[in-house]
């Protein structure tokens, strides 16, 4: 249910990019450029920081709050680094269809979560975090990292992939503990 929204948006958004990429000759330029990739990665991080802030304003569960604090802290750190790198490289992150789909899907999810409270909210937040991190991880490893040209951006995204993997495991433990 809720998890399918963001997962679907990501799959569709990046799936269409992947298919564009697949239609091109192997030597051709990637379907997405580094400025767009940086924007997508930044948007994904910002979405999770916003979700974490909502969790911190709504949840009274200690484990949920600790998880949310970790999400806010880690994703803010990656995004600060991404902005600093973009500035250093003279790249302006470029808005694109995938970023817009991500933002739209996340806004809808946040509205849904806002209507919940107590244990129902905690459970829905944790389950959505599992789905969100899984979907972004698939996009990072399957499309974004292989398409990235700049070595420093690629390295940052690879660190981001490890981070998303850790967060996904943490979210799964959290979701399991709330059942």
């Amino acid at each position: 249910m809720n998890k399918s929204v963001i997962a679907l948006v990501l799959t569709l958004g990046l799936g269409s990019l992947a298919s564009v990429h697949a239609q091109q000759a192997p030597a051709a330029a990637p379907a997405i450029n580094d400025a767009q990739i940086a924007h997508i990665a930044y948007t994904a991080g910002a979405i999770d920081v916003t979700a974490a802030k909502q969790a911190l304003s709504k949840s009274h569960n200690k484990a949920v709050r600790q998880f949310a604090e970790e999400m806010a802290r880690d994703h803010a750190a990656v995004n600060d680094q991404a902005l600093a790198l973009a500035k250093k490289l003279g790249v302006t992150p470029a808005d694109n269809g995938t970023s817009q789909s991500l933002a739209k899907g996340a806004a809808a999810e946040q509205t849904k979560l806002a209507a919940l409270s107590g244990a129902a909210y905690d459970k829905a937040y944790a389950e959505n975090e599992v789905a969100f991190h899984k979907a972004v991880l698939a996009a990072l490893d399957g499309t974004l990292i292989p398409s990235t040209q700049n070595a420093e951006l690629k390295s940052l995204l690879e660190t981001g992939s490890k981070l998303f993997h850790e967060h996904e495991m943490h979210a799964e433990h959290l979701a399991a503990s709330l059942k």
């Binding site: 970790e70 880690d74 981070l163 993997h165 850790e166 495991m169 943490h170």
Partner: peptide, 12 residues
């Protein structure tokens, strides 16, 4: 011998 981990990122 002390196995250890990062409590924020237990895969580390």
């Amino acid at each position: 011998s002390f196995p250890f981990f990062c409590k924020f990122h237990p895969g580390m």
